[in-house]
């Protein structure tokens, strides 16, 4: 199979997955108890008014008509309007997306910065105190729930020591750079500093699990590579140990690590719900929770569809890159 055909096939599969996600998201409304009319109608609305609302929302149409209408609108970029505020669902979701992406990228950076050195140290100093410390950290990191870690970090670092703000997002990353460009160095740096202070704790909270996960992955990968015969050969050639570890073994270890990181980025976009709620981070997660609380179906559906598409897209990119780097994948 050629690389082009491989991409086409993966792309088609991606479309099927997105269609599945959209269909399930649509069906959610019908398998949960209660009617969307309950979310829209005043609590003391008359039966006639409820009937009228159902008609205006198109809820009196047969299910398949509603489904096809929904698909058709979605294909035209129309995700509907919020039942509560009347704001266009796509506008609401896409204005929240940058905050979530920012948080996902920042937490991935935290994970990469910490986990790879930790994994390498752990592997190269196997059964030494540094290894025990790193493996203990990764065990604790994997076992700690996000919401608990977030609250504890806020209590300790924000409330007790006043080092970071407890919640919110003062500026977006791009907005901070705009200020830098428009208003000069001092306000620009201040905006960047505020951005950093606000994102630090949410990024650490969200990144801890992945730091632990990738530390373990790096450690096991490194150990495997260091036991390979080509490493023995390089040692026999008399190459310095640091060169063997970092140029040869680590490089090979990083291939699966990068794959996992890419996939985790997709998970992070959808999985930041709890962290966003704890830190009142104005992203997709907060939007999703608010929409669930008030049964704002158009917003709920739009958020889930965007998260689903994001996940599929990231997977697609990872697949493409992986296949490019390792042609065996295409052949298989």
């Amino acid at each position: 199979m050629s690389y082009g055909r491989f991409l086409l096939k993966r792309g088609f599969q991606g479309i099927l997955v997105v269609w599945g996600v959209v269909s399930i998201v649509f069906m959610l409304r019908f398998i949960t108890p209660g009617s969307p009319v309950d979310a829209v109608a005043p609590l003391d609305a008359s039966a006639e008014l409820r009937q009228r609302i159902a008609e205006e929302l198109g809820l009196n149409q047969p299910l398949y008509v509603q489904y096809l209408d929904y698909l058709w609108a979605l294909l035209h970029g129309d995700m509907g309007y919020s039942y509560i505020s009347g704001i266009e669902a796509s506008q609401m979701v896409f204005t929240k997306l940058p905050a979530t992406v920012e948080l996902a990228v920042a937490s991935s950076l935290v994970a990469i910065t910490l986990s790879i050195p930790l994994g390498v140290i752990s592997a190269t100093r196997r059964h030494q105190p540094a290894d025990y410390a790193a493996t203990t950290f990764s065990l604790v990191g994997i076992s700690t729930p996000n919401f608990w870690l977030g609250i504890m970090l806020v209590l300790l670092l924000s409330v007790e020591f006043g080092l970071f703000p407890t919640s919110g997002r003062a500026y977006g990353f791009i907005e901070a750079f705009r200020i830098l460009a428009a208003q000069g160095v001092s306000p620009g740096l201040d905006a960047l500093w505020q951005w950093l202070r606000h994102i630090f704790l949410p990024a650490v909270t969200l990144g801890t699990y992945f730091t632990a996960l990738i530390t373990r992955l790096t450690r096991s990968g490194m150990l495997e590579e260091l036991g390979q015969s080509y490493v023995q050969a390089t040692r026999a050639k008399g190459l310095p140990e640091s060169l063997i570890r970092y140029k040869h073994a680590l490089r090979n270890t990083l291939i699966p690590v990068i794959t996992v990181l890419g996939l985790q980025l997709g998970t992070l976009i959808g999985g930041a719900v709890i962290t966003e709620a704890v830190f009142s981070w104005p992203g997709l997660g907060t939007t999703l929770i608010n929409a669930i609380n008030v049964r704002d179906w158009p917003i709920l559906q739009a958020t889930l569809v965007v998260i689903g598409c994001g996940f599929v897209l990231v997977n697609l990119v990872v697949d493409a890159v992986y296949a490019y780097l390792d042609p065996q994948v295409v052949a298989e």
Partner: peptide, 28 residues
Amino acid sequence: MSDKDREGVNRRKFLGFAGTAAATAMAG
């Protein structure tokens, strides 16, 4: 249904038709 029509289909609009002053009272 046009976009403009659809925009009106939300809670705000229907609250306007409710029968008493306490229509959202249960919502707190």
